[in-house]
Protein backbone atom coordinates (compact mmCIF):
# COMPACT_ATOMS: atom_id res chain seq x y z
CA UNK A 1 0.00 0.00 0.00
CA UNK A 2 2.70 2.47 0.94
CA UNK A 3 4.57 2.47 -2.39
CA UNK A 4 1.36 3.20 -4.31
CA UNK A 5 0.44 6.03 -1.98
CA UNK A 6 3.95 7.46 -2.11
CA UNK A 7 4.13 7.34 -5.89
CA UNK A 8 0.66 8.77 -6.55
CA UNK A 9 1.16 11.49 -3.97
CA UNK A 10 4.46 12.52 -5.52
CA UNK A 11 2.90 12.58 -9.00
CA UNK A 12 -0.01 14.66 -7.68
CA UNK A 13 2.27 17.17 -6.01
CA UNK A 14 4.29 17.51 -9.21
CA UNK A 15 1.08 17.84 -11.21
CA UNK A 16 -0.21 20.57 -8.90
CA UNK A 17 3.04 22.40 -9.53
CA UNK A 18 2.25 22.24 -13.25
CA UNK A 19 4.21 19.18 -14.40
CA UNK A 20 2.28 17.90 -17.42
CA UNK A 21 4.18 14.62 -17.73
CA UNK A 22 3.56 13.63 -14.12
CA UNK A 23 -0.07 14.59 -14.51
CA UNK A 24 -0.51 12.39 -17.58
CA UNK A 25 1.04 9.49 -15.71
CA UNK A 26 -1.11 10.16 -12.67
CA UNK A 27 -4.36 10.36 -14.63
CA UNK A 28 -3.72 7.18 -16.54
CA UNK A 29 -2.79 5.33 -13.33
CA UNK A 30 -5.83 6.75 -11.57
CA UNK A 31 -7.99 5.77 -14.55
CA UNK A 32 -6.87 2.13 -14.32
CA UNK A 33 -7.43 2.05 -10.59
CA UNK A 34 -10.91 3.53 -10.62
CA UNK A 35 -11.84 1.32 -13.59
CA UNK A 36 -10.97 -1.76 -11.51
CA UNK A 37 -12.77 -0.24 -8.53
CA UNK A 38 -15.97 0.40 -10.50
CA UNK A 39 -15.80 -2.98 -12.24
CA UNK A 40 -15.71 -4.65 -8.88
CA UNK A 41 -18.66 -2.61 -7.61
CA UNK A 42 -20.87 -2.87 -10.67
CA UNK A 43 -19.77 -6.13 -12.22
CA UNK A 44 -17.17 -6.37 -14.98
CA UNK A 45 -17.98 -4.93 -18.38
CA UNK A 46 -20.88 -2.82 -17.08
CA UNK A 47 -21.87 -0.22 -19.64
CA UNK A 48 -21.48 2.71 -17.22
CA UNK A 49 -18.01 1.79 -15.97
CA UNK A 50 -16.12 3.84 -18.53
CA UNK A 51 -18.49 6.80 -18.07
CA UNK A 52 -17.77 6.70 -14.37
CA UNK A 53 -14.04 6.45 -14.97
CA UNK A 54 -14.18 9.54 -17.17
CA UNK A 55 -16.38 11.42 -14.74
CA UNK A 56 -13.96 10.64 -11.95
CA UNK A 57 -10.99 11.80 -14.03
CA UNK A 58 -12.84 15.03 -14.77
CA UNK A 59 -13.63 15.47 -11.09
CA UNK A 60 -10.01 14.86 -10.14
CA UNK A 61 -9.08 17.51 -12.67
CA UNK A 62 -11.58 20.22 -11.77
CA UNK A 63 -11.23 19.69 -8.00
CA UNK A 64 -7.52 18.98 -7.88
CA UNK A 65 -6.82 22.06 -5.76
CA UNK A 66 -8.88 20.49 -2.94
CA UNK A 67 -6.08 17.96 -2.46
CA UNK A 68 -4.05 18.82 0.61
CA UNK A 69 -0.52 17.54 0.06
CA UNK A 70 -0.08 16.85 3.76
CA UNK A 71 -2.75 14.16 3.57
CA UNK A 72 -2.93 10.77 1.84
CA UNK A 73 -3.72 11.00 -1.86
CA UNK A 74 -5.43 7.61 -1.96
CA UNK A 75 -7.94 8.68 0.69
CA UNK A 76 -8.71 11.80 -1.36
CA UNK A 77 -9.13 9.77 -4.54
CA UNK A 78 -11.20 7.10 -2.86
CA UNK A 79 -13.58 9.70 -1.47
CA UNK A 80 -14.09 11.13 -4.96
CA UNK A 81 -14.51 7.72 -6.61
CA UNK A 82 -17.02 6.65 -3.97
CA UNK A 83 -18.94 9.90 -4.27
CA UNK A 84 -19.19 9.52 -8.05
CA UNK A 85 -20.37 5.94 -7.64
CA UNK A 86 -23.05 6.90 -5.11
CA UNK A 87 -24.14 9.73 -7.37
CA UNK A 88 -24.39 7.34 -10.28
CA UNK A 89 -26.31 4.72 -8.33
CA UNK A 90 -28.65 7.38 -7.01
CA UNK A 91 -29.26 8.66 -10.51
CA UNK A 92 -29.97 5.17 -11.76
CA UNK A 93 -32.19 4.59 -8.73
CA UNK A 94 -30.42 1.36 -8.01
CA UNK A 95 -30.17 -0.01 -4.52
CA UNK A 96 -27.73 2.07 -2.58
CA UNK A 97 -25.05 0.35 -0.60
CA UNK A 98 -21.51 1.44 -1.15
CA UNK A 99 -19.02 0.23 1.41
CA UNK A 100 -16.96 2.84 3.13
CA UNK A 101 -14.06 0.57 4.03
CA UNK A 102 -12.98 -0.62 0.60
CA UNK A 103 -10.14 1.80 0.04
CA UNK A 104 -7.73 -1.09 -0.35
CA UNK A 105 -9.45 -2.09 -3.59
CA UNK A 106 -8.26 1.18 -5.01
CA UNK A 107 -4.73 0.77 -3.79
CA UNK A 108 -4.26 -2.85 -4.73
CA UNK A 109 -6.31 -2.60 -7.89
CA UNK A 110 -4.85 -3.86 -11.09
CA UNK A 111 -6.08 -6.00 -13.92
CA UNK A 112 -4.08 -9.07 -12.94
CA UNK A 113 -7.14 -11.27 -13.27
CA UNK A 114 -7.66 -10.33 -16.89
CA UNK A 115 -3.94 -10.62 -17.52
CA UNK A 116 -3.95 -14.06 -15.96
CA UNK A 117 -6.77 -15.16 -18.22
CA UNK A 118 -4.85 -13.98 -21.28
CA UNK A 119 -1.82 -15.99 -20.15
CA UNK A 120 -3.94 -19.13 -19.79
CA UNK A 121 -5.31 -18.79 -23.31
CA UNK A 122 -1.81 -18.37 -24.75
CA UNK A 123 -0.60 -21.43 -22.87
CA UNK A 124 -3.47 -23.57 -24.12
CA UNK A 125 -3.05 -22.34 -27.68
CA UNK A 126 0.61 -23.22 -27.52
CA UNK A 127 -0.27 -26.91 -27.42
CA UNK A 128 -2.11 -26.82 -30.76
CA UNK A 129 -0.61 -27.38 -34.18
CA UNK A 130 0.92 -24.19 -35.50
CA UNK A 131 -1.48 -23.66 -38.39
CA UNK A 132 -4.57 -24.28 -36.26
CA UNK A 133 -3.22 -21.92 -33.62
CA UNK A 134 -2.71 -19.25 -36.26
CA UNK A 135 -6.28 -19.66 -37.55
CA UNK A 136 -7.83 -19.51 -34.10
CA UNK A 137 -5.84 -16.47 -33.12
CA UNK A 138 -6.70 -14.66 -36.36
CA UNK A 139 -10.43 -15.42 -36.29
CA UNK A 140 -11.38 -15.79 -32.64
CA UNK A 141 -8.99 -13.33 -30.99
CA UNK A 142 -8.12 -10.76 -33.65
CA UNK A 143 -11.62 -10.94 -35.11
CA UNK A 144 -10.75 -11.41 -38.81
CA UNK A 145 -13.10 -13.16 -41.20
CA UNK A 146 -12.75 -16.75 -42.42
CA UNK A 147 -12.38 -15.44 -45.98
CA UNK A 148 -9.52 -13.13 -45.04
CA UNK A 149 -7.67 -15.88 -43.23
CA UNK A 150 -8.25 -18.30 -46.04
CA UNK A 151 -6.91 -15.84 -48.60
CA UNK A 152 -3.87 -15.08 -46.47
CA UNK A 153 -2.97 -18.69 -45.74
CA UNK A 154 -3.85 -20.31 -49.05
CA UNK A 155 -6.05 -22.92 -47.32
CA UNK A 156 -9.67 -23.19 -48.47
CA UNK A 157 -12.38 -21.55 -46.38
CA UNK A 158 -13.83 -24.88 -45.34
CA UNK A 159 -10.39 -26.15 -44.35
CA UNK A 160 -9.94 -23.08 -42.13
CA UNK A 161 -13.38 -23.63 -40.57
CA UNK A 162 -12.72 -27.28 -39.92
CA UNK A 163 -9.28 -26.61 -38.43
CA UNK A 164 -10.71 -23.99 -36.09
CA UNK A 165 -13.58 -26.22 -35.10
CA UNK A 166 -11.28 -29.13 -34.30
CA UNK A 167 -8.80 -26.91 -32.50
CA UNK A 168 -11.50 -25.44 -30.26
CA UNK A 169 -12.88 -28.87 -29.49
CA UNK A 170 -9.42 -29.97 -28.47
CA UNK A 171 -9.01 -26.89 -26.30
CA UNK A 172 -12.36 -27.52 -24.66
CA UNK A 173 -11.33 -31.06 -23.82
CA UNK A 174 -8.00 -29.86 -22.44
CA UNK A 175 -9.67 -27.28 -20.24
CA UNK A 176 -11.87 -29.95 -18.75
CA UNK A 177 -8.65 -31.68 -17.78
CA UNK A 178 -9.22 -34.51 -20.25
CA UNK A 179 -6.10 -34.68 -22.42
CA UNK A 180 -6.88 -37.87 -24.29
CA UNK A 181 -7.76 -37.15 -27.94
Amino acid sequence: MQPVEERLRRLMIEALAGDEKSYRQLLSDVGDRVRAYYSRRMGPGHASTEDLVQETLLAVHTRRFTYDSDRPFTAWLHAIARYKLIDHLRASRAHLSVPIDDMNDLISADDSEATGARHDVEKLLGDLPEQTRGFIRAVKIDGRSIAEVSAASGASESAVKVAIHRGLKLLARRMKGNDAP
Binding site: L16, E20, L27, S28, Q54, L57, F65
Partner: peptide, 21 residues
Protein backbone atom coordinates in the same frame (compact mmCIF):
# COMPACT_ATOMS: atom_id res chain seq x y z
CA UNK B 1 -12.11 7.70 -25.25
CA UNK B 2 -10.42 7.78 -21.88
CA UNK B 3 -6.88 8.25 -23.27
CA UNK B 4 -8.18 11.21 -25.32
CA UNK B 5 -9.77 12.66 -22.22
CA UNK B 6 -6.57 12.30 -20.23
CA UNK B 7 -4.69 13.93 -23.07
CA UNK B 8 -7.04 16.89 -23.21
CA UNK B 9 -6.95 17.34 -19.43
CA UNK B 10 -3.17 17.17 -19.21
CA UNK B 11 -2.35 19.31 -22.23
CA UNK B 12 -1.37 22.83 -21.22
CA UNK B 13 -1.63 22.05 -17.51
CA UNK B 14 -1.20 25.12 -15.34
CA UNK B 15 0.10 25.08 -11.79
CA UNK B 16 -2.81 24.94 -9.35
CA UNK B 17 -3.16 28.07 -7.23
CA UNK B 18 -1.84 27.43 -3.73
CA UNK B 19 -4.19 27.59 -0.78
CA UNK B 20 -7.19 28.00 -3.07
CA UNK B 21 -9.59 26.27 -0.68
Amino acid sequence: TTPDLIDSLATGLKPAPRGFV
